[in-house]
Structure formats: C-alpha cells, structure tokens
Design a protein around this nucleic acid. Structure first.
Length: 434
RNA sequence: GCAGGUGUCGCCAAGUGGUUAAGGCCCUGGAUUGUGGUUCCGGUAUUCGCGGGUUCGAGUCCCGUCAUCUGCCCCA
C-alpha cells in the first residue's frame, strides 16, 4: 500500500480503542456499580445515542449545547435545506447525546404510562462532546447515572448519595468527600448582591473558581465582565468571609452558613437534613460537606447539587443534583427529579493509576493445536471436554517459537495451557507460570 | 483560543549533522529438536508527517504547515 492513500489507523481525536485488559477493568467496574445500584431498587434502562436535535437543544445543557455532534439531514431533506440556503443549525436534525439526563427526561415523558412511579433508573452509556480532548477528558466517554423521577422530598437526594457512596466503596474508594450546595442558595446570593438575573451565570462561574484562582482572581474576573460594581463589591465581601472560613479549616456547614446571607430557608433546611442524614449513614467511611461555592455546569439544576472528591485527585469523580423543571419542558407537566452520575472515566483512570487488577477465579486454558495435523472436529471436541470442567478454554494454533508463545499467553492473563497431541491422546493441562 | 512536548515500517521504538536508518511486536521462509515450554539462520522502510530553507552533507539544525498529546480555560 502506498503511503499517500494509507488510512490512519488511529481512532478519531478524543476517542479511544480499548485493549482486552482495559475492557476487563471497565467491565469489572461496571458490574460492581450495577450490582450496588440494583440492591437499592434501581433498574436499568436504555435510550438511543442519537436524539432529535431539538430535544438536545431544548434540554438546557448549558455550555454543552455548543459541544453537540450534529448529524446532517439525509437525502431530499438535506438537498432541500441546502437549496433553500438554510442556516447552519437547520442542516442537522439529529445529534449525539452529550449527557444521559436530557435523554432520560425525554424517555420518561414518552413512556410515562408504562413506567413505575417513582422511577428509579440506572443508565450506563457513551455520551459525546465535541470538546478539546485532554487528560481525563474525551470526546466519547461513559457515564453511569442513577436518577429518581417523581420524588419531591430530600429522601431522593439522600438515597442517591447513599447508593453512589456504596458504589464507590465497592470500587475500592475510601475517604472521599461529598460536596453539596443548592442552586436556590446561589440564586439568592446573586440576588442579594444585586446582580441582574441574566448575569447570574457569570457570577456562578467566577464563584466556582474561588478555590482555584483565589479571591483576587475572582475579583479580577468579575471586574472584566462589566458587571454592576456595587454588586460585585458586595459579593466579594461575602466571599471574603467564606474564603476565610474555608482557609481556617472551619469547613463545617454551620460556620459557613453563618457567613451567608440566608435567603432561602427551605433550601437551607433541606441541605441540613441531607447533610446530617448522610453523615450518619456514612459511619465515618466518607464525609459530606456544605460548599457554598459549588456550582456545576448544567443549566437545568434547580435545587441541591453535589459532587464527589477523592483525596489526591483534583477533578471530581461524580456529580449530580435536582432538576425539577426538566420533565415539564418535555411533557408540559412538572415532575420532580434528581440524579447522580459517577464519572466512570475518572474512576477507571484512578483504578488504572493504582494498578488495580480485577480478580478472576476461573482457570483459563489455552489449547495449543497444530492446524496442519489436527482436525477441527478433534480440536473442538477436546476444547469442549476441557470446558466441561468449568474452565475458560481458548484454542490457538501453535507458533514457531513456543516459548515465546507461552510467555505471551501468560502476559495476557492465561493461567494454563494444554498442547493437543492429536485425537485420542490424553489432554495434559500444565500451568503457565512455570 | 493561548502555551509546551511529540510525529522514524501495520503497531511500539533506537537514532541528537557524516557512508548501506538498530531492535521488539505482528506477518513470513528455512534449519534444528525423542509427538512439541530447545537452539539457530533468514525475509519484509531507496526512507524518517508534509512543504520550504541552512549545509559539501539532515531523521538529526531553522521556518512554515498539518496531526497528536500535555497545561491553561471549562467540564465527567
């Protein structure tokens, strides 16, 4: 093949191939998460990877709307759109989902009559964002979501946090920290400071960076946004108290609460309930903490929001929150909902970094055969005989250098091998480790 | 969008200005061995992302370009 028309064999930017050992780890992690969630009564559902573009755009996905992979119309519809000089965003009629929440709400709205109420769903699936890829950040990645639709009380949040925590523990995590805040408090704060509603998002983004860029950084950032200077000053004043409280280690929510102009008693008492309950059930295995600077990116949150931090890792390994207005957008009837998503790729990254290897109990045998000599029937029968003992059996033609072949097989995780010596001869299984 | 790293056979990879560009994987030819965890010999890049330049001479230096990775921003 000439070089000019050689096709690149690398996967598209930001997307990955997985080797058998990587898939084994991912399968193990998925199984651990699923079995935990199932014990909480969550049931698995599935939705398509493609959605109508209108659903995705109407889903209030915040920044992610810019990152949708759009799928062009096809055939006559495309010709028509092109000939009519349609705008760019009228050329697509479908798009790849950028999260699992928007599709879930669409799914719920459509299948409501056949679904239990409340619905406790599990979703594991790929989502897509046309973003600039980086370490731990891809254009296709897996999300693991649990959602409760139809429960208004904080019991939903509590259960989501409990289930997620148990899942993380099942994955071998410990001492992680759950940060919690409430969108209503953030709105109240912005209002209290005197920001207009439309500028609230900018304020939130700056707030989110407090930990990273510090008070001065936030102050600078807000100054650059042409916001009401009086409101900014007031916000900085509040943040100063918060930052001081955080710095001095007074991170208990009571102290932070004292520093906040509490304008939403309902939100505050909800948080208190969640925090005290979760603290109780954590039995010291993990912690939960009020963080008034927690924001989260999605535009659709309406109430409590949360995120999981693992010590030693800067990015969060999970997040979620309440989105009570979303179902209404699709079905015209508001139904309370909230969800929690495990950052599956982050979990896998951390497990990989820890060189975690899932244990397999089964013996795995490679049956080495000579295709020149051995008949297919004899080989398949021999393999089946070995399988009947509960073993994993893989048939492989013998290679020239058997030592190397066996070393490779050992590295691939096989525990035993058996050289097939021809029909009728005894099957002698030997250990690969030597 | 800004900053840095990398780009050599299908894959991984040595090479840091001087004749014919290591090696491993994969593929493959053969010899050797008591039905097989032995040993050995071979075959696969007129060419180093692409385009220019410097030089007697460039994979190796410079400029541009593209691709990819990393950091910032933002997010799972």
């Amino acid at each position: 093949m000439s070089k000019d028309n050689a096709i690149s064999v690398a996967p598209p930017r930001g997307m990955r191939d997985f080797l058998p050992s990587q898939v084994a780890l991912r399968d193990w992690a998925t199984a651990a998460i699923l079995s935990t969630y199932k014990r909480f009564g969550f049931t698995r559902i599935e939705t398509p990877v493609l959605e109508n573009i209108a659903s995705l755009r109407g889903g209030d996905g915040g920044e992610n709307l810019q990152l949708i992979y759009e799928v062009l119309k096809r055939g006559e519809k495309l010709e028509k759109a092109l000939s009519e000089g349609a705008a760019k965003d009228e050329l697509a009629d479908l798009g790849l989902r950028f999260d699992l929440t928007v599709p879930l709400v669409r799914y719920y709205s459509h299948n409501q009559s056949q679904l239990p109420n409340p619905l406790k769903s599990i979703q594991v699936g790929s989502v897509f964002r046309a973003e600039s890829p980086q370490k731990g950040r891809f254009r296709q990645f897996t999300q693991c979501d649990i959602d409760i639709i139809g429960v208004k009380s904080e019991l939903a949040e509590m259960e989501l946090i409990q289930a997620t925590s148990e899942a993380l523990i099942a994955l071998g995590f410990s001492n992680f920290k759950i940060l919690i805040n409430d969108r209503r408090l953030l709105s109240a704060l912005a209002l209290h400071c005197g920001f207009v509603q439309e500028k609230a998002a900018l304020v939130f983004i700056a707030l989110d960076k407090l930990e990273k860029i510090g008070l001065d950084g936030v102050s600078k950032e807000l100054a650059g946004e042409a916001l009401d200077p009086q409101a900014t000053a007031k916000l900085i004043q509040v943040l100063t108290v918060l930052a001081a409280a955080k710095k001095s280690g007074q991170t208990s929510y009571v102290d932070l609460k004292a520093a906040l102009p509490v304008l939403d008693e309902q939100a505050m008492s909800g948080l208190e309930k969640i925090i005290s309950t979760v603290s109780e059930i954590s039995k010291g295995r993990f912690s939960i903490e009020f963080d008034p600077t927690l924001v989260r990116g999605m535009g659709y949150y309406t109430g409590p929001i949360f995120e999981v931090k693992v010590p030693g890792y800067t990015s969060s390994v999970g997040g979620g929150g309440r989105y009570d207005n979303m179902v209404g957008k699709f079905s015209g009837r508001d139904v309370p909902a909230c969800g929690f998503s495990i950052g599956f790729e982050r979990v896998i990254d951390i497990l990989t970094e820890k060189e975690f290897k899932p244990q397999t109990e089964e013996r795995s045998i490679v049956l080495i055969v000579d295709p020149e000599r051995d008949s297919g029937l004899a080989v398949l029968n021999a393999a089946q005989e070995l399988r009947s003992g509960g073993n994993i059996v893989c048939i492989q033609p013998r290679k020239k250098d058997m030592k190397k072949q066996l070393d490779t097989l050992l590295a691939q995780g096989y525990s035993h091998f058996c050289v097939f010596r021809g029909q009728g001869s005894e099957l002698e299984v030997k250990s690969l480790g030597g």
